[in-house]
Amino acid sequence: MSSINNADWWHIHQSVRAIRQGGVIAYPTEAVWGLGCDPYNEDAVLKLLDIKRRPMHKGLVLVAANLSQIDFLLEDLSQDEYDKVTANWPGPFTWILPDKKNRIPAWIKGDYSAVAVRVSAHSSVRNLTEAYGSFIVSTSANPAAHEPARDSLRVKTYFGEKIDYLLHGELGDSAQPTQIRDLKSDRLVRA
């Protein structure tokens, strides 16, 4: 884990605690504020989808601190596919990867057999997922059809008490949310 002061560590700990208790948190990412929770806790994911007003069938992105947190999704890739994906990580780039062994819940994948994943270089995201010990959900902090929040005040305006913890911090340097590309088709899903 990168070097962080005691006050920041306390906030990371509170965020992890909220996630472990089935809560939804808000946190800064590369370009916009994100909402996150434990992807294996169906109630937490349903709560996140409800407050965001996002239909489950669209699927959600997962974010990790490092490759080891998602190694089970990388093990079935060819060497060329592995090299292509890892060339962009850590960084603000999301890949849609096959979930051949069906280890990611349907409430994360939506109508798809694959899952969108990012290994972040953003210090708050990395510290959070390292402290949590696993990847978490990462979706933009905005109700459907609204602009993603670019500051904590907008997060509070959108969601108020509906989120369980807000991890203060700075956004990264990216101007736009991360690019999403499908590994199998090489199709750009979101620029």
Rank of each mutant, 00 (worst) to 15 (best):
I51W: 05
V45A: 00
I25F: 11
Q69M: 08
H13D: 02
L167V: 14
V32T: 06
S123K: 15
L62E: 03
P39H: 05
Y112M: 02
A149E: 11
Q176P: 01
L183T: 09
G59R: 10
I12A: 14
Y165Q: 09
S124R: 08
S113W: 07
D8G: 07
P143W: 00
I108M: 04
I4N: 07
D99W: 10
P98E: 05
S2N: 09
H13P: 00
S3I: 13
P92V: 03
V155A: 03
D182Y: 07
V117L: 01
G169L: 04
A44M: 03
S2H: 12
S124Q: 03
N88M: 15
I104A: 02
V24K: 01
V24T: 11
D71H: 13
A145D: 11
I4K: 02
D173M: 06
W10E: 09
R103E: 14
F135L: 11
I51S: 05
E42K: 11
V16A: 08
L74H: 07
T178Q: 05
G23L: 04
S134R: 08
S68F: 02
F72M: 12
D50W: 04
D71E: 13
L183F: 06
H146W: 03
K109F: 06
V16K: 03
S3Y: 11
G169E: 09
A131R: 12
